[in-house]
Nucleic acid binder design. Structure first.
Length: 561
RNA sequence: GCCCGCGUAGCUCAGUGGAUAGAGCGUCUGCCUCCGGAGCAGAAGGUCGAAGGUUCGAUUCCUUUCGCGGGCACCA
């Protein structure tokens, strides 16, 4: 029985209590969603509900009295073997092994789809992240967003949304020009301007640009400067795509800022804002009255000299996303951009949208890094950077992604590189992957012994007897597995994929504990029993849940390691 | 000055108003003749920065305050 099914049963028990007149409540007093949770302490039972505490007040009873009224109704529910009232009014339920065990069947039948839901079905969501200037390699700061942004998109999809990963390319403006000038200077053997880019990658880029097009150095100015900029930019963008693909983060759209200006999107954006009545002209500049909507001050769209501001691009970009049919635009921004939150929300409001409905800005704290016990200072222009690629080379894609996703983004993250590099067994990703590989190995052995087919999809449900899974550790593991769909749903709703990571760590712990005390395969010449086979089903179900969880994080689930 | 985030075990950190606040690392004690020991069982370790408030109930929500980090533009 899934917790959802249990919740439905509890609802019917509440209604039965109402119909007998023991509870004076109306239908509307029953919460839409009845909370069924795993108790922190499993001695309390398999599942707990706070329904009596929610209903008590409405029924004019104290929570414990309400719980006592409900108790006999709950005790009659199918699969429920014990109902306890505890503390202020919690109702603890214990399920029969058979009822609890059926879940393993369900998980294996659903396979990769187990845990997926439809809470966000029909929603089209744009997830924009990284959006780094294409003026250098992606560094560690970007890496957190690469991992988390991609995982958010995966989790949203798991809950039925249609998501699009989008990278906004700032291919316009003075940073691009400085970047181009720096590459040109390096190619011509000149000194790079002080406010230019000084990373070691600049001379390498210069070499590649000249190699691709030796004639470039002979071009007249200003064409030569532009040519260097465009060629270097193109190479850099290709490199970013390569690195991100390698990192298992695949963008659906690379959106060029320049194209906003050439496609007429800026004009369309301005039209939209003007039609909503929030644009005005003052001091020769064109403004957006963002202060109508919680922004500290109004923002300039077109400067007095006629040039567009960066903010103009932002507004046009937002309107363009909405025009492309996205119901919700999610932005992942670094803490250094938190000042943009109110103005971006105001843009949505100025465009006639609901900022709480159509736009969501997630602010992530910075990643700090320790090396040799000291903080590594990141500075792209000084060339003192640790790139995404460096990190992957040192610790691998799985460990890098996992260690970045495992923490909520609003908490600052300190990665001790030495620890991550030297003693990888500290990293929880190995703990989880090990559990998966270990289960895969048990199933492999079972298949070789002829106990069961190698592929879970070929397993015969008739060979499974849920009543055989009566050990407390088996119950604990099953209950935890049953909770997975709820974890996915909350990760999607809260945009917090780290919950998946924390959850599968618990599953791994629970499995190891089960494995240590419940022998799965027969030893020596022992006959094969229904218990062996039923335990294999539990192994298969656990393996599936870990696999599904890791997949939502973009981390591999190895069969062997 | 104003705005945002953080403050939980020695360290790094989980914890969507609920029960005795959790995990990993580190420290200590046990467990490999047999399914993967990258594992398991247990011990020690806490004024949830502080003070008020709301609530049947606060680590969680509100106010004040202290400490740390980040941000303020007709820059990009």
């Amino acid at each position: 029985m899934t917790p959802q099914e249990l919740a439905d049963h509890i609802r019917s028990a509440v209604m039965a209590a109402i119909s007998t007149g023991q509870l004076t409540l109306s239908q509307a007093d029953i919460p839409l969603e009845i909370v069924v949770e795993r108790p922190k302490n499993l001695d309390h039972g398999d599942w707990a509900t706070n329904i009596a505490m929610q209903l008590g007040k409405k029924a004019g009873l104290n929570p414990r009295a309400a719980a006592e009224i409900l108790q006999p109704f709950l005790a009659q529910l199918p699969g429920v073997v014990e109902v306890d009232i505890a503390g202020p009014g919690f109702i603890n339920l214990r399920l029969s092994a058979a009822s609890q065990g059926e879940l393993a069947l369900d998980i294996i039948a659903k396979g990769n789809a187990f845990g997926r839901g439809n809470k966000l079905a029909g929603k089209k969501i744009n997830v924009e992240f990284i959006s780094a200037n294409p003026t250098g390699p992606l560094h560690l700061g970007h890496t957190r967003w690469a991992a988390v942004g991609d995982a958010i998109a995966r989790v949203l999809e798991a809950e039925g949304a249609q998501s699009s990963r989008e990278f906004y390319v700032n291919d316009l403006g003075v940073q691009m020009d400085k970047f181009g000038a720096s590459v040109k200077a390096a190619a011509l053997g000149e000194t790079i301007a002080e406010d230019g880019y000084h990373g070691a990658y600049i001379p390498e880029l210069a070499e590649q640009v000249v190699l691709q097009n030796p004639e470039i150095v002979n071009l007249p100015e200003p064409e030569r400067t532009d040519a260097f900029r465009d060629a270097a930019y193109a190479l850099q963008l290709v490199d970013q795509k390569r690195v991100l693909d390698n990192f298992n983060t695949h963008f659906d759209v690379w959106y060029s800022e320049k194209s906003l200006h050439t496609s007429g999107a800026v004009e369309r954006g301005f039209e939209k804002l003007k039609s909503q009545g929030h644009m005005f002209i003052e001091g020769g500049a064109t403004w957006l009255r963002t202060s109508d909507f919680d922004d500290d001050k109004d923002r300039v769209l077109v400067k007095a000299d006629g040039a567009l501001t960066y903010f103009a691009s932002d507004t046009a970009y937002y309107v363009d996303k909405r025009n492309r049919g996205f119901d919700l635009c999610i932005y992942l921004l670094g803490a250094d951009h938190h000042g943009y939150v109110n103005r971006l929300r105001a843009v949505a409001a100025c465009a006639g949208d609901d900022p709480d409905e159509n736009i969501q800005i997630l602010i992530g704290q910075m990643v700090k890094m320790l090396k040799n016990g000291e903080e590594v200072r990141l500075s792209k222009r000084a060339g003192n950077i640790i790139t995404l690629e460096d990190l992957v080379d040192e610790v691998g894609v799985d460990a890098a992604r996992y260690s970045l996703i495992r923490y909520p983004v609003e908490s600052p993250l300190v990665l001790d590189l030495d620890l991550l590099v030297s003693s990888t067994n500290d990293n929880p990703v190995y703990y989880v992957q090990y559990a998966h590989a270990r289960i895969a190995s048990v199933i492999r052995n079972a298949a070789e012994l002829g106990l069961i087919p190698a592929n879970t999809s070929d397993w015969d449900p008739k060979t499974f007897d849920p009543a055989e899974l009566s050990d407390a550790r088996e119950g604990a593991l099953l209950g935890l597995l049953a909770d997975y769909p709820r974890v996915v749903a909350s990760a999607a709703e809260l945009r917090e994929p780290h919950r998946i990571a924390r959850y599968i760590e618990e599953v791994a712990t629970s499995y190891h504990s089960f494995y240590a005390s419940c022998r799965v395969l027969p030893q020596g010449d022992e006959p094969v029993t229904a218990r062996n086979i039923s335990r294999l089903w539990l192994c298969g179900a656990t393996c599936q849940v870990i696999f599904n969880g890791l997949e939502l994080l973009g981390v591999s689930a190895p069969e062997r390691m």
